[in-house]
Design a protein around this nucleic acid. Structure first.
Lengths: 127, 127
DNA sequence: CGGCATCCTCAGTGATACTG
DNA sequence: CAGTATCACTGAGGATGCCG
């Protein structure tokens, strides 16, 4: 078995100081994951995204998009028209990352029956 | 292209009310992701885990493990000895989930050069 | 429409102490 | 060793208002 110590990668997310941990949090964070998931479907304007990611506030979506853009996962394209039009889409890198995230999300969605059953068992034992 | 509306799954994480969103947050949350990642390597005792997940507090690790156990992703095995000995390991379901998470993490770790470069470009444009 | 600035709150988090 | 309990604090995040 490969232990963590043996991995010895340049960017080890298990280390507190590694920048990869920050990026992982942008990607997997509450709104990051959902935003990437939504963008995996295509290219969207700000308010379209906002509607797709149910519950996200304007501020958090804006903040999330900035973080992802800075990390090179999302491309922002603004047209200086009036009214302004801004489109967001994944970069090739973002697409790779989002793809893996989607695999996780879809597996989880498909396993919710198991999860819910486990919860009932757990709560039954504790209660 | 498959739009979100067309998916129409029983558990849609994009919906605010869906329980899958809660589980996704347990899995991808700050400590959840790292804990699952660590447990993917094998079976560990509480304090062993604590050392592997750099920076996690006792309280947060405990809380994280409880949430993952409740969701049926982690199995907890306590021996009523003295001193007490408790081992944690992934369930089969947890192993599937963690595997997909690992794929994401490792891709991200391997792409950090790109990410860091993107950040410099971004910061350069803004500054 | 697509934001940014501000204020405010409370839930997530860490530190500390204690227990079986 | 493997936690639980308590407290204090920070910052994530929501609400509101304004602007190009």
């Amino acid at each position: 078995m490969t232990t963590q110590e043996e991995r010895d990668l340049p960017y080890d997310v298990f280390s507190r100081a590694c920048p990869s941990r920050g990026t992982l949090e942008h990607v997997t964070g509450r709104w990051g994951a959902l935003t990437l998931g939504a963008l995996y479907e295509g290219r969207f304007r700000f308010n379209e995204l906002r509607r797709r990611v149910d519950g996200v506030s304007e501020k958090m979506l804006s903040q999330t998009l900035h973080a992802l853009e800075r990390d090179g996962l999302v491309h922002r394209e603004a047209q200086p028209t009036n009214p302004p039009r801004v489109d967001y889409e994944l970069t090739p890198l973002g697409r790779e990352v989002a793809g893996r995230l989607i695999a996780l999300i879809e597996y989880l969605e498909g396993s919710m029956d198991q999860v819910l059953a486990a919860r009932e068992r757990y709560d039954g034992r504790v209660a």
